[in-house]
Simulated scan of single mutants.
Amino acid sequence: MIGNLECWTVWFNIDNPGWTGDYEKLETLRNAGYKVCKQPEAVRCRTVHTHIDAKLTGRKLTCSPSVGFFCVNSDQDWGKTCLDYEVKFLCPCNYVDAPTKPPFDLRMAFALCFGCWTAWLDRDGPGGTGDYEQRDLFSRPICDRPGSVQCRRTSNHQAALKTGQKLFCTPALGLVCINKNQPSGQMCYNYEVRFLCPCPDGLTNVPPTSQLISSLPPLQSGIKNKPIVLYVVLGAIGILLTIIALVFIRFKIQRKRVLNVNERESDNTGNYESKIGEMEISTPPPSYSVAVMEMESEEL
C-alpha cells in the first residue's frame, strides 16, 4: 500500500504445529529478536508450503494484527491438527523499529554460500513520494527469503548506504526511500536493487568471500537458535559419553588380560610344585637306603 506509505514485512515462521499447536504471535516474534512495528495496520496468515490463506484451511485459529497468529491443536475437530503457518504484517515504511538485519537463519546462511544474484531491478523512480524497490512489488517473482541484498544508485552505481540519504535496504524488504524523510527538502535518488537467492539448476554465482562475510547477519538469541544450541550441547554430551565408554571398555579388556596372565602363572606354579612333590615321593630318603643296607649285611 504505497499510497499510504505502508510496507509489508517479511514472512515470519518461528514455530511449527508440534504438540500444542502453531504460535506466530507478535510478542513471541519480538522476543525472538524480530522487529515489528508497535501497531501493525493489517496481517496476512497462510500455510508455509502451499501458501493457502489460513482461514481457508478448515482450522480454528486466530489471525489478528494486534496479536499475530496462533492455532491450538486441542481446539480442532476430531482427527485434525494445526498446519504450519507463517505471517507478515503491514507497517509504516518509515517506522523506527524497521528490521535492518533479521535474526540468524540457517536457510539464509545456505543462500549466502550457494546462491545466485538476480539481475539489477529498478521498477520505480524517485518521483511522487519516493523510490520504492520493494521485493514484493516486482513483477518478476523474487525468492521468499533472500540471503542478501545490494542497493545502489542507478546513475553512478554508488552504494545506497553511502549516499547519506535516509532509506531502508534489507533482504526482506528491498529498498524504500521516502522523499519527506530527506534533509533540506532533498529528493531521493533513483535506486536499483538485486537479491541473493538459491541458484536454479545447480548454477552458482557467489560474490567474493569478504562480501559474503560482511553481509552475514549477527548471531542473535531467539527461538530459532535454541534448537541449534540444543543440538550442539547434545552432540558434545554424546561425544563425552562415547569417550567414557571407550575408556571403560579398554580398562575392562586390560584387566581381563592381567587376570588371564595371573591365572596362567598360578597354573604353572601349581604344576611345578606337583612335579616336585612326585619326585620327592618316588625318591627314597637317604636314611631308608642306609637301613636297608644294614639289614642285608646282618643277613649275610
Rank of each mutant, 00 (worst) to 15 (best):
E280T: 13
N262Y: 10
Q254A: 11
P284W: 02
L259W: 04
S274W: 09
Q254R: 13
F251T: 05
K275F: 01
N268K: 03
V258D: 03
S266I: 02
I281W: 03
P284S: 02
T283C: 01
R264M: 08
E265H: 01
E263W: 02
E280F: 12
E280I: 14
D267P: 00
N260R: 02
S266M: 03
S266A: 05
N262H: 08
E265L: 03
R250P: 00
E263C: 08
F251Y: 06
L259R: 12
L259H: 12
I281P: 00
R257Y: 07
N268P: 02
S282F: 05
Y272A: 11
I253C: 11
K256M: 07
I281E: 06
K252D: 09
G270Q: 09
D267N: 04
N260C: 06
T283P: 00
S282I: 08
I276D: 14
I253F: 10
K275V: 08
K275R: 09
S274V: 12
E265T: 04
N271Y: 02
K252V: 13
F251S: 13
L259S: 02
P284Q: 00
S282R: 12
S266W: 13
I253A: 09
L259A: 07
R264Q: 08
N260E: 08
T269K: 06
T269N: 14
V258G: 05
R255V: 15
R264N: 10
M279V: 03
R257Q: 15
T283R: 01
F251R: 09
R250E: 03
E278M: 11
E278H: 07
R255G: 05
I276P: 05
T269G: 01
G270F: 06
E273H: 13
L259M: 06
V258N: 08
E273W: 11
T269P: 00
T269R: 10
N260M: 06
E263T: 04
M279E: 01
K256L: 13
R257V: 15
E280N: 14
G277S: 13
R257L: 11
R250N: 14
E265V: 15
P284M: 05
M279A: 00
V258R: 11
Y272D: 12
T269A: 07
P284T: 09
V258A: 05
I276S: 11
L259C: 06
K275M: 13
E273Y: 10
E280Y: 14
N268Y: 11
T269Q: 05
F251C: 04
N260Q: 10
P284V: 08
S266R: 00
K275I: 06
E265I: 05
T269V: 06
R257A: 09
G270A: 11
V261P: 00
E280M: 04
S282N: 09
E265K: 09
R264G: 11
D267A: 13
E273M: 04
E265P: 00
K256G: 11
E280A: 08
P284R: 00
I276C: 08
Y272C: 02
S282Y: 00
N268D: 06
I276T: 07
V261F: 03
I276N: 06
N260H: 14
Q254T: 14
N271W: 01
I281D: 05
V261I: 15
R255T: 10
T269F: 07
K256I: 07
S282V: 14
E263I: 06
I253L: 14
R264V: 05
N271D: 11
N260D: 10
V258I: 15
S266F: 02
G277C: 08
Q254H: 10
